[in-house]
């Protein structure tokens, strides 16, 4: 499961989406996430689907690669879907013992699942098309105003980008430790939930130790390369809005307005 996390893995191809300013992409992702919660009508979801499909198409990232991130949220997805199906009061369709499946429940569960799936796809799309450094730069620039309230924006952004850089490395390491422990008789796949959780201890301890060692090494390497916080830093690729970013912002605004509008347009459901 852990290998399926695509968030934070940059997919290096050249596309319009890749070339957009990270601030634009951040805003776009926010707008998209907001729109998912603003709308509640099928028309809205159809529109969101079209927009998302269009963006994926433009990004030239293979669809398979994007959906890989979904496996990681499968459990949450199943849980929230079943809760919604069984616990929403309304017009019953059929009964399963004491559980009652309602039409409203089914609809709500469907929307809920779509929301979650689109949420993950939307944010994966952003991280897949934006290098962590760009992402950091984008966050740092967009949130710079928080500096005035004493929030260390640069440091947080740096921490984020380093975390993203080390995800694939630590995943690989987890895999290695797992194999090493399996070779020595550890069993990660059988037993009940508690037994499995206990089996994770010999995995987590070496992983933590190694993560701390890496962190200490990295800190040293960064210091040796003259890192001294955000002050006086320049950029190889300073952020600059281009024509395409302005177009993207206009499209985003239109999209958001339309999505809000779908809230008020009543279309008879089913």
């Amino acid at each position: 499961m852990i290998r399926d996390i695509t968030i934070g893995q940059y997919y290096p191809v050249d596309s319009v989406i890749h070339r957009l300013d990270p601030r634009t992409k951040l805003a776009g992702t926010m707008v998209f996430l907001m729109s998912l919660f603003v709308t509640s009508s099928p028309v809205g979801y159809i529109l969101a689907t079209l927009v998302l499909a269009g963006c994926i198409r433009l990004s030239r990232v293979p669809f398979k690669f994007i959906t890989r991130g979904l496996r990681a949220i499968l459990v949450i997805l199943l849980l929230s879907v079943s809760f919604n199906i069984f616990l929403t009061p309304g017009e019953p369709i059929f009964r399963l013992g004491f559980l009652k499946v309602t039409k409203e429940g089914l609809l709500l569960a469907g929307f809920m699942a779509l929301r979650l799936v689109y949420l993950v796809i939307g944010s994966s799309l952003m991280t897949l098309t934006t290098t962590p450094t760009q992402l950091t730069d984008g966050l740092e620039r967009s949130l710079r105003f928080l500096n005035r309230f004493g929030v260390p924006v640069h440091d947080i952004a740096m921490m984020m980008s380093i975390a993203l850089r080390f995800i694939p490395i630590l995943v690989e390491e987890t895999d290695k430790i797992m194999k090493a422990q399996t070779a020595r008789g550890a069993d990660f796949d059988s037993g009940n939930l508690i037994q499995r959780a206990k089996a994770m201890i010999p995995l987590l301890v070496p992983l933590f130790v190694s993560a701390f060692r890496r962190a200490s090494d990295l800190a040293l390497a960064m210091e040796a390369r003259c890192y001294h916080g955000g002050e006086g830093r320049t950029k190889m690729h300073p952020l600059q809005y281009e024509h395409r970013d302005r177009v993207a912002y206009i499209l985003m605004l239109v999209y958001l307005l339309v999505m809000i509008a779908t809230r008020f347009i009543r279309i008879p459901v089913l």
């Binding site: 980008s161 060692r213 990295l218 890192y227 320049t234």
Partner: peptide
Amino acid sequence: DNQIISNVVEEDVAFGPENIGI
């Protein structure tokens, strides 16, 4: 692995010069 900061080669090479304000 423990001294490369960025996920793209050129950005990592730029890290030092960026720090010293080039």
